[in-house]
Design a protein around this nucleic acid. Sequence first.
DNA 1: TATTGTTATACTCTATAACTATA
DNA 2: TATAGTTATAGAGTATAACAATA
Lengths: 162, 162
Amino acid sequence: MTTPRRPPRTGFLVSQLGAFAAARFAELIKPAGLTPATAGVLRIIAMEPGLSQRELATRLGSVPSRVVVLVDSLEGAGLVSRTRDPADRRHHRLDATDAGRRVLGTLRTAAETQSRDILEPLEPEEREAFSAIVAKLAAAHGLDPDVHTGYGRKDAGDAARG
Amino acid sequence: MTTPRRPPRTGFLVSQLGAFAAARFAELIKPAGLTPATAGVLRIIAMEPGLSQRELATRLGSVPSRVVVLVDSLEGAGLVSRTRDPADRRHHRLDATDAGRRVLGTLRTAAETQSRDILEPLEPEEREAFSAIVAKLAAAHGLDPDVHTGYGRKDAGDAARG
DNA sequence: TATTGTTATACTCTATAACTATA
DNA sequence: TATAGTTATAGAGTATAACAATA
């Protein structure tokens, strides 16, 4: 063998670091009554006003019944509105409310705090290098920061295949 | 503000990358009848022969009833044995069987494949830099590659605090 | 009485299937 | 009949509480 005795633990540690990051973010947004899943949905709806629940399910790589639960939560908190589409009354248009848009600022602050907390042990040059490589890997693997279902691939249908 | 318009998405992307890595590992060990949780437990038991379930629960930052389920699964698959401690018959000594030790090789191969798949988009120098920084972050945040409960801190009791 | 492990139970998350209303 | 959304139900995964065996 050509490589030294170092075990291949980078993959394990990436998993652990990701779980740590997710837990930290969850903790930071909990006071706002949000979870990583609902926060991601709020961001998507704010970016794509008038989205239908069916489209949102596709975007999340999830199923309509799951979307009902997530939107129920956001609507109950007054952050998102459901409006029947007059053109086709089967559709619900989803939009962020004023309160929902204000919460986006809170989410941004939480994301900044999360990133700062995670990167805190590093030297400034290491932070730059790490952030750049993480961005490259996320892009190469097709990951979407707003999708907190499964493992967040943009083309969520192919999750089972290698 | 002093920084440019770049959003602080490194934390999000670390979460997504971690979930992606975990899903890939889960997929790789599924044919062996293992999950990330049971694989981590098998590794711990192999490294610390004779561990009790109570000690394992502490090690995992989990509860005894959870350990029962995990050990049941490994024992049912013939990978781990429970033996009553003659000195104190309340304790169960946990040990990896021969089959369990053989599966450790499979786990190592899976971890190698997982790491290779994740790092594949990077240049060789980037891989080195990334692995070193991930190791530094994991150490600084007290993460344990065998703990797949919650977010895997070695001192699992303090999970709720910042 | 205290400790180890187990069982019973419940809660969360997420999916499938059946159903309602619209078209 | 086909589609959007909802409800009912079920299955993981993980926790708390009650319990049995042992000390």
